[in-house]
């Protein structure tokens, strides 16, 4: 909307171009309706073909091996294998949700609203960040499985309490922050024109990619006693 002062100088108020608008009925509703029908048909088809699981009656005295959380919490269960439970179960997910909720209050530049990845550069940054995160997460999981921080710390002759504190709290926090901040630095170096929105695309992609990678590892690569296995070696919990 033009300010009264602009109008006094003969400036036309900005109005949406009428040619860019169409009637919701039928043009928009038909798209919604077809999408809904396809979705419902697919969901019904899946429900006809696949049975919802129902195992034996719960036996509190008999723990299955492995015992896994629902799939959307497997990324947190995976973190639990590598760090202090308070960190993995509460502090990291809590901080992630807070940061996600706070995004709009730090990225206020409204240019590019409604455009996928904002710019062509945004697409490149998204791809780069996804691959970067996948490599880091996979490497860290493998390192902790086959080497681990604690054996290295013990080799240094540290007392057990120091090994626990460093290995469970200090090192995981440093590693997570490094992965996060190093990416921001790399993006700024590789794309000098990247503004805040583009750095946020990189950082949000760390969340997206690590959630996906950790969920896949937890679902298909964690076998008996949560040791790493190949998907074809997975056995039923027993």
């Amino acid at each position: 909307m033009a300010q009264p002062a602009d109008q006094a100088q003969g400036a036309q108020p900005k109005r949406p171009d009428p040619l860019d608008r169409v009637y919701t009925w039928p043009h928009f509703l038909i798209v919604e309706f077809i999408g809904l029908m396809v979705f419902v048909v697919l969901l019904f088809l899946v429900s006809v073909l696949l049975k919802a699981p129902l195992l034996d009656l719960a036996q509190p005295e008999y723990t299955p091996n492995p015992a896994k959380a629902p799939w959307y919490f497997l990324s947190l269960q995976e973190l639990l294998l590598h760090m202090h439970p308070s960190l993995a179960g509460v502090i990291v997910p809590g901080a992630v949700l807070l940061l996600i909720a706070a995004i709009p209050y730090f990225d206020k530049d409204e240019r590019g609203t409604g455009v996928w990845f904002t710019t062509r550069m945004g697409v490149d940054i998204y791809r780069y960040s996804f691959i970067y995160t996948t490599i880091w997460v996979t490497a860290l999981v493998l390192f902790d499985e086959f080497v681990g921080t604690k054996p290295v710390l013990r080799l240094l002759g540290l007392p057990d309490s120091a090994v626990e504190f460093l290995g469970n709290i200090v090192i995981p926090v440093i590693v997570m922050l490094t992965v996060f901040l190093l990416l921001a630095w790399l993006v700024k170096r590789r794309w000098p024109n990247a503004d805040r929105r583009h750095v946020f695309i990189a950082m949000f992609t760390v969340y997206v990619a690590s959630f996906i990678v950790l969920t896949i590892i937890g679902s298909f690569f964690r076998g008996e006693s949560m040791y790493l296995v190949w998907p074809w070696e997975l056995t039923h919990p027993h």
Partner: peptide
């Protein structure tokens, strides 16, 4: 997830509650 009260429900919830119960 807990409501069917089968082995899957019981132990998935056990793991889940342990994750959430780690509040400092």
């Amino acid at each position: 997830y807990l409501l069917p009260w089968d082995q899957l429900a019981y132990w998935a919830i056990t793991v889940g509650v342990n994750i959430g119960g780690a509040v400092p």
